[in-house]
Amino acid sequence: MGGLSRLVAVAANTFRETVRERVLYNLVFFAILMTLSGLLLGQLSIRQDEKVLKDIGLAAMDFFGTLIAIFIGVGLVSKEIERRSLYPLLAKPLSRGEFFLGKFAGLVFTLLVNIAVMTLGLYATLLATGRGADPGLLAAIYPIFLGLVLVVAFAMLFSTLTSSALASVLTVGVVLAGRFSDVVRNMREVLPAVPTWVVDGLSAVIPNFRNFDFKDRVTYGDPVPGDVLLWVTVYAAVYVTIVLGLGLASFRSRDFQ
């Protein structure tokens, strides 16, 4: 059995494990419920029903996807450690890298399935209300997914460093900071005493989750240029690689004796 097939086996197992999580069903249920609530809210909005439906559907994907990524992501490795189920696994011909990346791939696949389910739910709701299945929405959904992959990477990094509770807090902190990245960039306008290198350093380190937000553009029917999506993909891929690399290094260096 090659390294890749072992990694895929861990990923498949992680997928099976995560889809059994009750929290996942709860979150997906609420996401779909929220999308359906758009039907009612849209009617109260004076001719803005389609926009409200799209706004709510996309926000639900983003918000609940982030919650899934954080709360399942932090448990992927730490649970195995806490339940001591990691030791027999590592005693098998399975490297720590294969285990770690397999876990990551498994959760990313779970998120992909969730996003697909929520997307189908949104399109079904739009069609049921006589609206077109606007393919332009995918230009916002794809970057949302990339953002979620980055959140999983951070959740896994922190879970190798500390307890799952603290890892959740740290991941939420990074996500919030990343969503306020424009505030960080313009920090000197409010706090001129802060040295430039601090602002530049923070801007470089904190992931810019604003990069993954095209919800506003697509709900107004504005096109998202392909090259922008390409650069967002490159940004996400590089960031995920760095964060996963750090997580892997931390996981490899841990002493499980």
């Binding site: 109260l44 909005s45 803005q48 409200v52 706004d55 983003d62 306020f180 604003r210 919800k215």
Partner: peptide, 17 residues
């Protein structure tokens, strides 16, 4: 952050109500 449009919808509904 990132949910401004949704917040705008909520405030718009509040305005109408």
């Amino acid at each position: 952050p990132g949910f401004e449009d949704l917040a705008a919808d909520v405030y718009w509904l509040r305005t109408v109500q």
